[in-house]
């Protein structure tokens, strides 16, 4: 596994929730959006364990709806619990990244 995908594993839940918060999406659409967001080395299937976990925790819910291209698709929505969880993770993430950025940048200068 590449370093990037190892680092991502922990925050993938938050990435998925962030996309779903923006707009309800179905499985394939979600995997494309993740790739377009600059995470191309995640295999497309990676989202399904994440989606199962998030649904189990009540962070997202699903609904069958007609898609613009025709057939019925299962769309995912962010729940209130999901919004709170996303908020929590985002805060934690910015705390960590600030500290890590400082550390790593300082290392570069020395």
């Amino acid at each position: 596994m590449s370093i990037r995908s190892q680092l991502l594993k922990g925050v993938l839940d938050a990435c998925v929730m962030a996309i779903v918060k923006n707009q309800a999406v179905y499985g394939y659409e979600l995997s494309q959006k993740l790739q377009h967001a600059g995470l191309p080395d995640i295999s497309e299937g990676t989202i399904y364990p994440v989606l199962l976990r998030l649904q189990k925790n009540g962070c997202i819910r699903s609904e069958m709806k007609k898609s613009p291209s025709g057939p019925n698709r299962k769309y995912y929505f962010l729940t209130e619990e999901g919004e709170e969880e996303l908020e929590r993770i985002s805060n934690e993430w910015s705390l960590i990244t600030n500290s890590v950025n400082n550390l790593l940048n300082r290392g570069e200068k020395e």
């Binding site: 179905y26 499985g27 394939y28 995997s31 295999s43 497309e44 299937g45 990676t46 399904y48 199962l52 057939p71 698709r73 299962k74």
Partner: peptide, 30 residues
């Protein structure tokens, strides 16, 4: 879940991708 993944594969197939882009290199572990 099997249906969700089948839907995904069908759409990926239309876009010229094969099943390994979904299942990865270790389908059993997946």
């Amino acid at each position: 879940l099997l249906m969700d993944i089948l839907d995904h594969l069908l759409e990926a197939q239309e876009n010229g991708k094969d099943a390994t882009t979904l299942f990865g290199s270790k389908p059993k572990e997946y």
